[in-house]
Write a protein that binds this DNA or RNA. Structure first.
Length: 242
DNA sequence: GCGACAG
DNA sequence: ATCTTGTCGC
């Protein structure tokens, strides 16, 4: 006899359970603080998770900024030096449900970031921050629980609408939902799809946009680009160390 | 009822 | 995201 909550071996969530989780997201969203960074960040980290069957491997990579922005508005790429890497591994149980990604990815990602010896001044996460139906995407979820300045830099849009930004690097347009600017579509690389940038926690949208540009040589910002590469490699290899 | 839908 | 090679376009 198959329980209605188990379809093809995968646990499904009841509408009531999802409502409860949605309430939790709204509570977390109220804790998101949108204020300027206290100072130019020196240590900047990126975190990402990779799946290998049931195994979830998350990597946090911390970089040191080798030069500071020449001005507040400057968006040129700034050189970075990798200083540390941390890994975490967990068994994933929560299914992927659009709008509820954080319940699947946040636990391992948080564990990886906590494993860093050097606490970063800024964290970049591959996913939405406030650009979410309840203003609590993965980056905000992680940012609030870790209480770190965090940016959400997603490869595609989950919620809201935007006009296509101009073709040049640095061009951006606001992402709007419910009469509110919840993020921005940012051209990090000429003629490449824009990145969806939003406030995760303890940063302003304008700062988030500028930092994403300063951290991007290619379409994906270096911190998450490397976190993704390392997580993929770690998930592929048998053991946890490297 | 019909799409849309982070990773 | 994952299962997967080479290939076309900027």
């Amino acid at each position: 006899m198959i329980s209605p909550h188990f379809v093809s071996g995968k646990p499904a969530l009841s509408p009531l359970e999802l409502e409860e989780l949605a309430r939790l997201q709204k509570e977390l969203a109220e804790k998101v603080v949108e204020t300027p960074l206290p100072q130019t960040p020196r240590f900047i980290a990126g975190a990402d998770m990779h799946l290998r069957g049931e195994r979830a491997v998350a990597v946090a990579v911390c970089f040191e900024l080798l030069s500071e922005p020449t001005s507040d508005e400057a968006t040129d790429f700034l050189p970075l030096r990798e200083v540390e890497r941390a890994i975490a591994e967990q068994k994933v149980t929560f299914p992927y449900i659009p709008g509820f990604l954080s319940f699947r990815e946040a636990p391992v990602i948080i564990e990886a970031v906590r494993a860093l010896e050097q606490t970063p001044d800024l964290l970049v996460v591959d996913g939405q921050g406030r650009a979410h139906p309840r203003r609590c995407g993965l980056a905000s979820h992680v940012g609030v629980l870790l209480d770190l300045p965090t940016i959400g830099a997603a490869k595609s849009r989950l919620y809201g609408s935007y006009r296509e930004p101009g073709p040049n690097r640095g061009a951006w347009t606001p992402l709007v939902a419910e009469e509110e600017i919840i993020g921005a579509a940012v051209r990090t690389r000429p003629s490449a799809r824009p990145l969806i940038v939003s406030v995760g926690h303890r940063i302003t949208l304008l700062e988030a946009i500028r930092w994403v540009l300063r951290l991007s040589r290619y379409r994906i910002p270096e911190p998450t680009r490397w976190a993704h590469r390392y997580a993929k490699a770690a998930a592929a290899s048998k053991d946890t160390g490297w």
